[in-house]
Design a protein around this nucleic acid. Structure first.
Lengths: 340, 340
DNA sequence: CTGAAAGCGCTTACAG
DNA sequence: CTGAAAGCGCTTACAG
C-alpha cells in the first residue's frame, strides 16, 4: 500500500509550489483558474488529503474540543455528548472525551498540551487550581463550581426543585421527603435547598434523606422510608435513577406507587416514560444544553482565534427545566379519621 | 497571562540545547545527572508542559484513538466508551468520539488526517469502500461487516439468542415470538437466525415480527401481539429497550408479565434489573468488550509503530454472553382444556 | 554525554 | 497570481 501523499507530492505533480497548493485548497480564489485546475487534478490523482495535525500545529490550533465528565458511562451524558459532537462537527471541530477523574497531573496537562482548543466541563468537583490553571477557553455545563473562572450553562436547580414540590403540594400532599444527591455535589445541594424553601413556602412537613444519584441510593432510601412510623406520602428524588430505585424497592416491598407514595424524579432520562409507573420528573433539556455549550465554546475558541479580547468572560446562561407529569404521582390516600 | 513556555525557553534557562531538554524529559538516563537536575529546575521554573501536538507531528503519531458509533446517545455505548477511555488513558492515548453518520467525505477524512492512530468501529453499516480506504489500524466492535478488512470483537449473537430460546423452552413455552432488530443490521439478523434455529431444534412454534432496537418498536410489537387470535406465551426481543417497550405497552393494555407473556431482552442495560418486572435478558459484557477493543487497537497501533508487520491481521475474538434470569419470564399459563 | 541541524507536513508573511 | 523561505514546537540521527 502506497504511503499517503503529502502536499509536496501534489505540488510537484501539478508543477507548482506547495504554497500554491495550500492556497488552492484553502482559499481557491486567491489562485488563477488554470492553476487551481492543475492543482485539483493533482489532488485527485494522488488521493491527497490534508494532514490536519500538521496544519493545526502551524496554525497553533487543535480544532478540537474536549469534554470532561465524571463518568462517561452515565446515561445522563449521552445526549449531551451527541449534541456537542454534532455542533462541533458542523464547524469542523473534533471532539475528545475524557473521564474527569484521571488524576491531577493528567488533568493539568489537558489544558496545556495543544491537543484541544477549548473544554466543556461537566464536573464541578475538580480542584479549582487545576481548572483555573488551564489556559484554554472553558465552559461549565450542568454542574459548576463558583471558584472556576468560567461561564456556566445549565438549569436553575432550586427553581426546578420548586416545580416538583409545588406539583406535590397541588396534589394535596402535606408531608414530603427528599432523597438528596451526594453531599458534595452542587446540583444535589441546590435541589435540596430548593426543596426545603419551596416546602416551607407551602407550609409542608419536609424531611431529607442523604442519598446519591444512583439506583442503589434510591432503593436504600425506600427501605428507610418503609421503616418509618409515619411515612411521608410523597418523595422527591434528586435524580431519575434514584427515583427508579426507590419505586422499584417500594413495589418489591408490597407498596403501590403512587397510591402509597408519590414519586418525582429529576432529569427525564430516556426510560422515565417507559417505566412502570411512568415517572413524573423534572426535565433537563439535555440536547439543548449540549448544543448551547458547544455554541458557546465554539464562539470562545473562534473569538480567541480572531484575537478578540475578554471573550472568556461571557455570562452564565440558564436553560429552562420543565415539570413532566406522568403516573408516579397522584393524590395522597386519605388517612383514616383525617378531616376532609 | 504569560504565554506558555516552549522547550526553547527551558533550554536557555537551563543553559543547554533543546535536544538535551527533550532527552532529559523523555529518557532521563541518557543525560548526566547534573544536567538532568538543571533541566528539571528550569522546567519547574517555567511551568513547561510539552506540546503534545508538536511531539506527535514529529513522531508521526497522533496518540489518539477514534471511536465511531452510529448514535452517541445510545445508552448501550456508555460503558463501552468508558472502558475504552480508561484503557487508552492508561497508556497515554487520547480518545475521540464521533458519530459514524456524518457523511461519506468527512468519514473518509477521519482515516487520513493524522489525528488518530487507530479506530474502534461500532457501526457495520458504513460503505466498505470508505472503511477499507482508511490507512489506519481498525477493530470492529459489537457490530461488524464481512466486507471490512479488520478483526472483529464481540459476542456470538446466534449462540446468545439460543440461550434465550432454551430458557423459554425449559420453562415450558411452546409458542414463541421474536421481535427482531432492524432488517439491515447484522446483530439483528444473527439474533433472528439464532432464534429460528434454536426454536426449530426445540420443536417450538416460532414467529418473527420485524422490529428495531427501540422502545417504540417494542411497544408497537406488543400491540400486534395483543391483537393476535392465539398469542405466543413468550417473546424474545432483540434488545432490552425493545423488551421494555413491549412490557410497558402490555401492562398498559392490562396484561401481566410474566403470567400472560414471558419476555426476554438483550444487552442487560443498567435499568434491566430495576425495571418492574426485572428483566430477564442476555448480558453483553460491555465493559469487557470496551477493554478488549482498546487492548487490541493499542496492540495494533504500538505494533505498527514498532514496525511489526501484519499486525492488522489479528483474528476475531469472541466474548461470552450470559443469560440473566430475572422476573420477566416464568412458566406459561396452562390453557383451559389443554392437556397436563 | 551533548549540540547543531534537519525534518514532521503544513501555512503565511514577504517579495516580486 | 506565484514562489522561496521561515517557522509552528518538537525529536532524532549524526558527530564529536
Amino acid at each position: 500500500m502506497r504511503a499517503r501523499a503529502r502536499i509536496k507530492d501534489v505540488a510537484s505533480l501539478a508543477g507548482v509550489s506547495t504554497a500554491t497548493v495550500s492556497r488552492a485548497l484553502s482559499s481557491p480564489d486567491t489562485v488563477g483558474p488554470a492553476t487551481r485546475e492543475k492543482v485539483m487534478e493533482a489532488v485527485k490523482a494522488t488521493g491527497y488529503r490534508i494532514n490536519a495535525a500538521a496544519r493545526d500545529l502551524r496554525q497553533r490550533r487543535a480544532r478540537s474540543i474536549l469534554i470532561l465528565a465524571p463518568d462517561l458511562s452515565n446515561t445522563f451524558f449521552g445526549k449531551i455528548f451527541a449534541a456537542i459532537q454534532e455542533e462541533a462537527s458542523d464547524v469542523g471541530l473534533t471532539v475528545q472525551i475524557s473521564d474527569s477523574r484521571i488524576g491531577r497531573d493528567r488533568l493539568l496537562s489537558l489544558g496545556y498540551d495543544g491537543r484541544a482548543d477549548g473544554i466543556v466541563l461537566l464536573d464541578g468537583g475538580i480542584d479549582p487550581e487545576v481548572v483555573n490553571g488551564w489556559k484554554l477557553p472553558l465552559v461549565q455545563l450542568s454542574e459548576w463550581n463558583d471558584e472556576y473562572r468560567a461561564p456556566r450553562l445549565g438549569i436553575d436547580n432550586r427553581a426546578a426543585a420548586r416545580l416538583a414540590v409545588d406539583h406535590l403540594a397541588d396534589l394535596g400532599h402535606r408531608d414530603i421527603l427528599h432523597v438528596s444527591g451526594p453531599g458534595e455535589n452542587v446540583l444535589g445541594v441546590e435541589r435540596q435547598e430548593g426543596f426545603l424553601m419551596a416546602a416551607a413556602d407551602r407550609g409542608m412537613t419536609a424531611t431529607v434523606f442523604p442519598g446519591a444519584f444512583t439506583l442503589e441510593a434510591g432503593a436504600q432510601a425506600a427501605r428507610h422510608w418503609a421503616a418509618l412510623a409515619t411515612r411521608p406520602t410523597a418523595v422527591f428524588c434528586a435524580s431519575d435513577e434514584c427515583a427508579l430505585g426507590f419505586i422499584s424497592e417500594c413495589v418489591h416491598a408490597g407498596f403501590d406507587v403512587p397510591s402509597d407514595v408519590s414519586v418525582v424524579g429529576f432529569d427525564d432520562i430516556d426510560f422515565a416514560d417507559r417505566f412502570l409507573p411512568a415517572l413524573t420528573t423534572i426535565r433537563q433539556p439535555r440536547a439543548d444544553m449540549g448544543r448551547a455549550a458547544a455554541a458557546r465554546i465554539i464562539q470562545m475558541v473562534e473569538g480567541r482565534a480572531a484575537g478578540s479580547d475578554n471573550v472568556d468572560a461571557l455570562p452564565t446562561e440558564r436553560l429552562e427545566p420543565a415539570l413532566i407529569i406522568r403516573s408516579s404521582t397522584g393524590t395522597p390516600k386519605r388517612k383514616p379519621g383525617a378531616p376532609a
